[in-house]
Design a binder for these strands. Structure first.
Length: 264
DNA sequence: TTCCATGTTCCGCA
DNA sequence: TTGCGGAACATGGA
């Protein structure tokens, strides 16, 4: 799940549940999920502190620690959050658990262990060090900016949309959805898109990301015209009813409608 | 048993 | 140097 809309939903979930509570204990079930820290160091940094607020950049979620610094949560392909009673059982694959003094706990869940939990002194420095591009909803992404960035890219537009060093937050599922809604074939060469195409792509990108985030990234709530719920064998286009096709684009399975999505 | 999966990183190639 | 594709990583579900 975790692309921009999912992480935005996690942010809102964390904001609504786990802020401003004293952290009594930190449990690390599997320290392979930790990056640049240890279970002991993470505990020392968080114990007695509170999470005071969050920010998101692309697929990364940062929670400010009252004692200073940030808790970084990255969700990989299978990460999520769960807030509940400390006494109630833990969800399966809970890797890191913050237990609060009020008897609740926030669990970071990751089945495939591809995510990352870390403590940072500076979130902006992390974004720069990891070469993350503009957040996909950043107003600085204009048609002109896209045209400039895409000019040197002869590869598929889908590859460009998923390049985190260019635009942060879009992955395989949402790049397909954006390109479907924009009527663009995923293998359209980026540098072949004109200003009008890019203005349309930008508008579509923002609309799709906002709409899906507004539905907590739950595909069951997406509009009927969306492609995401049709990503399956023998899936049909929600607009023309034709058979969807799949193709590999930079190693990922891409779903698209060959009738509604044309190359430029 | 084999293949595939919503992410990132590293390597080789043009 | 930059863009791009493929493999690797870890694990479970179909």
């Amino acid at each position: 799940m975790p692309e921009l809309p999912d992480v935005e939903a996690f942010k809102e979930y964390l904001d609504a549940t786990a802020l401003h509570q004293n952290i009594a204990r930190v449990r690390v079930d599997d320290d392979r999920i930790l990056s640049g820290t240890s279970a002991q160091a993470l505990g020392r940094r968080l114990k007695g502190s509170r999470l005071q607020g969050t920010r998101r950049h692309g697929k990364h979620l940062f929670a400010r620690i009252s004692g200073g610094g940030w808790l970084l949560l990255h969700f990989g392909m299978t990460g999520e959050l769960d807030y509940g009673e400390s006494n109630g059982g833990l969800p399966e694959y809970a890797r890191v658990v913050l237990e609060f003094e009020n008897g609740r706990r926030l669990a970071y869940i990751s089945r495939r262990m591809l995510g990352e939990v870390a403590v940072l002194n500076d979130a902006d420095a992390f974004i720069a060090e990891h070469d993350l591009g503009l957040d996909a909803l950043d107003d600085a992404i204009t048609p002109e900016w896209l045209q400039q960035q895409f000019a040197s890219r002869p590869g598929p537009v889908k590859t460009a949309l998923m390049d985190q060093s260019l635009i942060a937050g879009i992955g395989n599922v949402y790049s397909d959805e954006i390109l479907f809604q924009a009527g663009l074939h995923p293998k359209t060469r980026s540098n072949r898109l004109n200003h009008e195409d890019l203005a349309h792509l930008r508008r579509t990108m923002r609309r799709v990301l906002r709409t899906t985030a507004g539905h907590q990234a739950d595909p069951a709530q997406f509009p009927g015209s969306y492609l995401t719920t049709r990503r399956e064998k023998d899936g049909r286009c929600p607009k023309c009813g034709g058979a969807l096709k799949t193709d590999k684009v930079s190693g990922r399975t891409s779903y698209f409608c060959p009738k509604c999505q044309q190359k430029r």
